[in-house]
């Protein structure tokens, strides 16, 4: 044994420089565990009497391994209109002790058509995997996550907002970065005494630093309105003479992608004409002139048709008649 001790006496210097970390094991022995090994010998002495001898107990403590993984949870690019959107991620403490993680979200990812603004980072408190405003906790600037036990996962939300001037179909990505609060760095980096029960904290194969991109795609609807008029005069022709009827047709086309949440088509009754009662229609169906449960309202100052939510690709046709004074 003596020669064995000598043989390795010079090794610590080498170790410090070329340390190769062990593979991370998410289900590893908890940090702070004491590994104690004792051997026992049983034998018969010269008189044939059974004897027992124990060795000393060698003890080594399990250090805290710092490891983390991150995954994007949405599955496909999250649609973003001209307002806010939420990206969902999950971070997992793959180390062997409790650890909190610092989170950052970087909106300036190479290849982006546009960069969103990051409004905040939040984590799921009710376990439903969906961001609930006012329920899930929004992290303060620079604040870490709560401590996660070994193998525990946390659903993290990145709250973003679309900038102006985005074109329908443009794509963007946001990079979420999670780093162990105790420290991150090259695998094998050790933080003396900062692990569980005063053990060292050692950076594992993940470098205690995980990042993953979440994708966004701009979904912006575009509206076009086309208005046409046809005239029928009292004599069966199409001259715009007094008492002739003009039928106005307004076609609203929703292009692009996504949807318009509150499409409201309005038009004024032209000067020198009078609205012809009960002629307002939407897609061929008559609407009452009164302000009531149906979508339409019409009088001598103008017409209003409240279409409501309108998806891209949809088309709406509004017609009404006026009489030339």
């Amino acid at each position: 044994m003596e020669h064995m001790g000598l043989k390795f006496a010079a090794s610590p210097l080498v170790l410090a420089t070329f340390l190769v970390a062990s593979p991370a094991m998410a289900d590893g022995v908890p940090a702070g565990t004491l590994i104690e090994n004792t051997a026992t010998a049983e034998f018969s002495d010269a008189d044939g009497t059974p004897q027992t001898v124990d060795s000393n107990t060698v003890t080594v403590q399990v250090d805290e391994l710092l490891d983390v993984t991150a995954a994007w949870q949405d599955g496909s690019a999250v649609a973003i209109g001209n307002a806010s959107a939420v990206l969902t991620f999950e971070i997992t403490n793959t180390g062997n002790g409790p650890e909190a993680f610092n989170l950052t979200a970087d909106a300036a990812v190479t290849g982006n058509d546009f960069d969103v603004t990051v409004d905040g980072l939040a984590y799921d408190t009710n376990g439903n995997g969906i961001y609930d405003d006012g329920v899930d906790v929004v992290l303060g600037a620079g604040a870490p996550t709560p401590s996660l036990d070994a193998d525990a996962a946390l659903t993290v939300f990145v709250l973003v907002n679309s900038p102006a001037g985005v074109t329908d179909g443009d794509s963007s990505a946001v990079k979420l970065v999670a780093q162990a609060v105790t420290g991150a760095g090259a695998p094998g980096t050790s933080f003396a005494g900062q692990g569980v029960n005063g053990s060292n904290a050692v950076v594992g194969t993940t470098s205690a630093d995980a990042d993953v991109d979440g994708s966004l795609i701009a979904r912006l609807a575009a509206l076009s309105l086309i208005k046409t008029a046809s005239v029928i005069d009292p004599f069966g022709g199409s001259e715009a003479v007094p008492d002739a009827t003009i039928t106005f047709t307004i076609v609203a086309n929703v292009g692009g992608s996504g949807s318009i949440t509150d499409l409201n088509v309005t038009d004024a009754i032209p000067a020198g004409t009078t609205y012809k009662p009960a002629t307002l229609t939407l897609d061929g169906a008559p609407l009452t002139d009164a302000s009531d449960a149906d979508a339409g309202e019409a009088n001598n100052s103008g017409i209003t048709v409240d279409v409501g939510s309108a998806a891209a690709g949809a088309s709406y046709t509004v017609t009404f008649d006026v009489t030339i004074d």
Binding site: F8, L19, V60
Partner: peptide, 27 residues
């Protein structure tokens, strides 16, 4: 009894196993 930790160290491009008394160990 004694316990030693086996590490793979690379010196001059050659990987070799080295045993040393552990301060702490990880899974």
């Amino acid at each position: 009894g004694i316990v030693q930790l086996e590490r793979v160290v690379t010196e001059d491009g050659k990987a070799q196993k080295v045993l040393a008394a552990p301060e702490g160990v990880v899974p």
